[in-house]
């Protein structure tokens, strides 16, 4: 049948060149590139701090305090005569650690809960979502303060508290996305092809809500970094004697007027990485979507 071959030939010409195979979206978008670069820098700084820092971390140096950036101390020194660049490098570790663990906890619990809620009609789904609503009623900070009160303030407690408080956000967004997927005909097609519910969840639901989850993760990552800073600022997260960007901000508050760079530098680091993760998340979502590859 000649017309049929014509139709097939059209498919090739319709969308330009054939896909290169391998990764679904071939075209790297600007968000992904810029966001990825920023994320790479932050991760690079954190890794660098394990092998090299200008001075030993947290060490009190025999120099003038409150130095502004200079040749000796690129980012200056703080009240306790410590090198700010060293603290930024070491602090990147804490910040990333908190972000990854908090988002990891939230996504690992929240996404399956959301899918479960969407795929099980009746009381189970309702129960999951109502439990979720209860959790949602507690702001992340309040939960972290409660945890800190119970278990003492530490980075680990802070990140787990932030993670638990972020579960509902993941569960909600996953559920709404999954409900949409469950209504599509390709899920009915999968059922009639004999796919089990677990198979449908893994093959159809997860890939199709991945975009939503990635964006949520990048937003939550940013929130977690900020929450860690806030907790440290309140004196409930990372304890004294351990570097974190939030901790640095906290300690800079008393000298905001006399030495503003002590607040501005960690502040800028936080703002830049938040921006980086958001861009990276958006870019990743688009890159993973095969439908956007021809645009």
């Amino acid at each position: 049948m000649s017309e049929v071959q014509g139709a097939a030939a059209d498919a090739v010409t319709d969308s330009g060149q054939a896909p290169a195979g391998g990764s679904p979206g071939r075209r790297l978008n600007p968000s992904l590139l810029v966001g990825g670069a920023i994320v790479a820098v932050v991760v690079g700084l954190a890794l660098l701090s394990y092998v090299w820092t200008p001075y030993a971390p947290m060490r009190v140096l025999p120099v003038e305090p409150y130095q502004t950036p200079n040749a000796e101390h690129w980012l200056g020194t703080d009240r306790l005569r410590r090198d700010v660049l060293t603290q930024i490098l070491v602090g990147a570790r804490t910040t990333l650690f908190v972000g990854f663990v908090a988002v990891g906890v939230a996504a690992l619990v929240g996404v399956p809960l959301g899918i479960l809620a969407a795929m099980s009609p009746g009381w189970l789904g309702q129960l999951v979502m109502r439990g979720n609503d209860v959790l949602l009623a507690f702001p992340a900070l309040l939960l972290a303060i409660m945890f800190a009160a119970l278990y003492g303030g530490s980075t680990r407690v802070a990140m787990i508290a932030i993670g638990i408080a972020t579960i509902p956000a993941f569960a909600r967004i996953t559920r709404s996305g999954a409900l949409g997927v469950m209504r599509t005909e390709y899920v009915v097609a999968a059922r009639s092809a004999g796919r089990s519910p677990l198979g449908i969840a893994v093959r159809h639901v997860v890939p199709n809500v991945a975009g939503l989850v990635i964006v949520q993760a990048s937003v939550s990552f940013a929130i977690a970094i900020l929450a860690e800073a806030a907790l440290a600022y309140l004196g409930l997260g990372t304890p004294t004697g351990q570097a974190s960007w939030g901790r640095m901000l906290y300690e800079a508050q008393t000298t905001l007027r006399s030495a503003p760079h002590l607040a501005l530098i960690p502040g800028a680091a936080i703002a830049l990485s938040v921006l980086g993760f958001n861009l990276f998340g958006d870019g990743l979502r688009d890159w993973l979507d095969p439908r956007l590859e021809d645009r």
């Binding site: 049948m1 049929v4 071959q5 139709a7 097939a8 030939a9 059209d10 498919a11 090739v12 319709d14 969308s15 054939a18 896909p19 195979g21 679904p24 095969p290 439908r291 590859e293 021809d294």
Partner: peptide, 21 residues
């Protein structure tokens, strides 16, 4: 009536009739 090459493409790259195939 589709080309074997279609196997490695995604649904959105096809027209309505081809998708129905």
């Amino acid at each position: 009536g589709l080309d074997p090459e279609a196997a490695r493409r995604y649904p959105h790259q096809f027209s309505g009739g081809q998708r129905q195939r």
